[in-house]
Design a protein around this nucleic acid. Structure first.
Lengths: 192, 192, 192, 192
DNA sequence: GATGAATGAGCATTCATTCAT
DNA sequence: TATGAATGAATGCTCATTCAT
């Protein structure tokens, strides 16, 4: 048999890597970071424990990788581009997406939320987050500024908090939380 | 020599118990439930590992005790009484307190938030919570009902979410989050 | 109040001591030596943990004391006296008693049997045993000798073994083991 | 380098497993189940504590495995087959083997005897035992029935007890117990 | 004499990580 | 590249024993 080309190898590696991440995501979300052992992750990803260390240097790195992916995924969906000017239509879309994303991918977001409050883990991911959230917050501020809010900075931060609260409840109690109504209330309040 | 009286013993016990709870609170909040080992808690409380088990049957029980205390503390401060009829003034006070409490006792509330998303732990505390939150939510709904909202139930849930979001940001970024402005915005929106 | 006389104190001590031994006997027999903690014994004996050490230097000593009592109890019941000459009638009585004792006080004998096979414990009690069993075995040998057995020593040892086997089964399966029939078989075989 | 083939792994595992069982057998027999800690077993088996759990899920499982092996070993030697019809010759052979086995493998049998009287442990092994002893007892009863005994069931139980007693003494005092004479006495009494 | 708080060594078990193959 | 045996430190927890009161 002809040896694989290095492109094929690279492809294989990426595939394996994402299988591992996928397994880890589900286990972390289901049983928490500490209860999800490397053994379980490897088994779920159909590889040996040893091989995992060929792809990630540690369990912590799996987590780090997962959170970075998480952001990229969210940014992708929201189609946020640095320097973007946000229109009312776009703002409404962002609200709708913000509510829908956690409903559609609760695993991912539960994991994310569970991490934010564990100081040891939070430090790992906060740096990544701040870098990636910066441009998004800039665009938001510009939007609130254009709306003639008194204190657009404060408003932007308040809006972020409100949105997080809504997302939180979407995750914690999806059956009872009135997601559609919430979108409507958000629009009523913030898109004057 | 005569043994201590049982009052003396009881006093001693209560003191020790609260030392343990205090140590545990800080460690749980700082490094999470799993990373805060019984050894660390005992060391921080200046007692031996073994003695912890003279006061609590398990690490889990320390956590449970801590969450119960948390609720009682919050309920106390908010002066919530079952069946209370909420006036506008009282509603404003609740908003103000809701924002101030996490700012004043961030440790306690960080702990609480960190637990909510750890599935294995959440089950432990959710039961306690639901029992204690019920009356509060009833009063809230009655209030929104009196305000002629379309769907007071949905509004109450949305309000809870918004409040949680605000508390979240107070905890996560107390330096930058505009707490006072947030109170004002909340009152403007919900106390029509 | 007049101070107690030293006789009264001594009496009190003996009473306490036997309460402790009683509690220990039941717990050892029910859950085994290792599972029966000093705490449990003290609680069952209605005294404090600390006081137990006023009566016995260690948990092991409680056990030792218990086994010695056990022997004295058995010897008492069997009315064995050093140098006794055993008649056929007396031999039959010994057989009957040997079978009845374990049936009537299974706790005591189960404890005893459980100890014999735990080397660490066995060493403690074997010495006591050999001293106390010696005269009994002498009398037995004399009896078998009078019966014109080939090898009275071997017969005596075989008889002891058979008796132990019967006692064993009386303890382990009192409901199914035919104790009365066994007595009869024993007499038929050994009292020619 | 290529990983080991699964045959190689399996071979390795079996070897290690039996090393662990061997170490455990000796320690359990010598100091009892509770005193023989996992640490000691691992040290005696020349492996790390952790590795033991790669082979057995718990200390209890080691014990269970050991008792199952014990039975299989005994059944093998005795060549007992379910439904076997026992002749006089075969009966004599069974008596001889019953006496010789404990003499040849005292460790194994001491372990077994020590377990029977520890309530917490006994339950674990009794189930296994009853299943495996059933057919053997059936054959015995058939034998005693063919001998025109009054009450073959009672006789079978008495015989079992006597045999156990003899085995007990073979174990406890192999130097003084007259094993050969005992075989002879057993045959005289039971093979009329 | 009497108490029970306090200790610390020990226990069974888990698990991230390494490494010979 | 790939395996899983092997390690050892750490975990939650128990308990005989000591000791200040």
């Amino acid at each position: 048999m002809a040896p694989r080309t290095s492109e094929q190898y690279e492809e294989l590696r990426q595939e394996r890597k994402s299988e591992i991440l996928d397994a880890a995501l589900h286990l972390f979300a289901e049983e928490g970071y500490h209860s999800a052992s490397v053994s379980k992750i490897a088994t779920k990803a159909n590889i040996s424990k040893g091989l995992m260390y060929n792809y990630f240097h540690s369990k912590e790195e799996v987590l780090k990788s997962l959170t970075i992916d998480l952001f990229e995924y969210a940014m992708d969906i929201m189609k946020i581009t640095p320097g973007e000017v946000i229109t009312d239509e776009r703002f409404k879309e962002i609200i709708a997406l913000s509510v829908d994303i956690p409903l559609e991918e609760p695993q991912r977001w539960k994991l994310y939320m569970s991490l934010v409050f564990q100081k040891d883990i939070a430090e790992l991911i906060m740096k990544e987050m701040k870098i990636r959230m910066g441009p998004y917050m800039m665009s938001m501020m510009t939007y609130f500024n254009s709306k003639d809010y008194d204190d657009p900075m404060a408003m932007m931060r308040y809006f972020s908090a409100v949105l997080d609260g809504v997302q939180l409840h979407c995750l914690l109690d999806p059956e009872h939380f009135p997601a559609e109504k919430a979108k409507q209330y958000l629009i009523e309040q913030f898109v004057k």
